[in-house]
C-alpha cells in the first residue's frame, strides 16, 4: 500500500511542476503591480487593457489569426483531397506518398525551417507572407491528413455506392454524401491546423519577412527587453485561445458525429 502513496505523491508533484508556472502566469496577469512578482497587490484587468491598447500586439494578433485561418483552410482542403486519394484509390507509390506527407511531423521543425529557407535562397526569392503561409501548411497538413483519413476509413463505401446507384455522379456523391459525413473530421482538422499555426514560433522565426510579427514572435521580442506584466496578460489570452478553441471544437465535432452515426 505504501507504494501507491508514493506514486500518488509523485503524480501530484509532477502535475504541480508542469502546471504551476502556467498558473503563476495567469495569476500574475491579474496583478495590478508594475512588477510581475508576488505577493499580488489586488485584482485588476489593467494589463489586459494595456494589451488592447498596444498596437504592436494587436497587429501581431491580426497577423496570427489571418495566418492561422488561411493555413487551416488551405491545409484542410489539401488534406481532404489527399485523404480521399489515399483511402479510396489504389495507385503505385501510395506508401511513399503517405510517408512524404506525414514526414513533416517526424522531421525536427528547425531542419524543416532551414531547408525551406535554403530552397528559397536557391530560387532567389525573398521571404514573404506567402512563404510563411506555405511553411505553416506543410507542417499542419499531416495532422489534418491523419484526422481526416481516420474518419474516412470509417465511412463505408456502401454509402457512396448506394448514392451512385441512385443516379448521383462521383462529384455529387462527394458533396452530398462523403463531405457531410466527413464534416466532424474536417472541422477538427481545421481547428488543429489553426491552433498549431497560431502557436508556432520556430518555423515562423525563420520564415517571417522583416517587420511582420505573429503573437509568439511578438512575445519573444518583448521578452528580450523586459518582462512586462503585459506579457502575462498576453500569455493568459494565448492559453485561453489555444486550450478553449480545440476543446470547443471537439465538443462540436462530437455533437456532429453523434448526429451522423
Amino acid at each position: 500500500m505504501k507504494g501507491w502513496h508514493l506514486i500518488r505523491l509523485y503524480t501530484i508533484l509532477f502535475y504541480l511542476f508542469m502546471f504551476l508556472p502556467i498558473a503563476v502566469v495567469v495569476l500574475l496577469s491579474f496583478n495590478p503591480s508594475e512588477f510581475g512578482t508576488f505577493p499580488m497587490t489586488g485584482v485588476s484587468f489593467r494589463w489586459f487593457v494595456a494589451l488592447w491598447n498596444n498596437d504592436a500586439i494587436v497587429r501581431a494578433f491580426r497577423v496570427s489569426i489571418l495566418l492561422g485561418a488561411m493555413t487551416a483552410v488551405i491545409s484542410t482542403t489539401f488534406g481532404v483531397m489527399a485523404s480521399l486519394a489515399l483511402v479510396r484509390y489504389d495507385f503505385p507509390g501510395k506508401g511513399l506518398l503517405t510517408t512524404l506527407l506525414i514526414a513533416p511531423i517526424l522531421i525536427p521543425e528547425v531542419v524543416l525551417a532551414v531547408a525551406l529557407l535554403l530552397f528559397l535562397r536557391w530560387l532567389d526569392m525573398p521571404k514573404s507572407l506567402p512563404l510563411l503561409l506555405f511553411g505553416h501548411v506543410i507542417f499542419t497538413l499531416p495532422f489534418v491528413l491523419l484526422v481526416v483519413q481516420a474518419r474516412l476509413v470509417g465511412i463505408r463505401r456502401d454509402y457512396e455506392e448506394a448514392a451512385m446507384s441512385l443516379g448521383a455522379g462521383p462529384i455529387e456523391t462527394f458533396f452530398k454524401i462523403t463531405f457531410p459525413l466527413l464534416m466532424p473530421a474536417i472541422f477538427a482538422g481545421m481547428l488543429f491546423a489553426f491552433t498549431i499555426s497560431f502557436d508556432d514560433i520556430t518555423g515562423t522565426m525563420f520564415w517571417k519577412p522583416g517587420g511582420v510579427e505573429t503573437v509568439p514572435t511578438q512575445i519573444y521580442a518583448m521578452l528580450r527587453n523586459s518582462i512586462s506584466p503585459e506579457i502575462n496578460a498576453l500569455g493568459t489570452v494565448m492559453i485561453v485561445l489555444t486550450v478553449a478553441l480545440p476543446l470547443l471544437g471537439m465538443a462540436i465535432a462530437r455533437q456532429m458525429s453523434a448526429n451522423r452515426k
Binding site: D158, E161, M164, S165, G167, P170
Partner: peptide
C-alpha cells in the same frame, strides 16, 4: 456505362442508409 447511369436498384447487407 458508369453505375449512376444504369438505372439499377441496389440493396446492401448493411442497409447503407445515409445517416445524415
Amino acid at each position: 456505362i458508369p453505375i449512376h447511369k444504369r438505372n439499377l436498384g441496389l440493396v446492401f447487407q448493411n442497409y447503407a442508409l445515409f445517416p445524415h
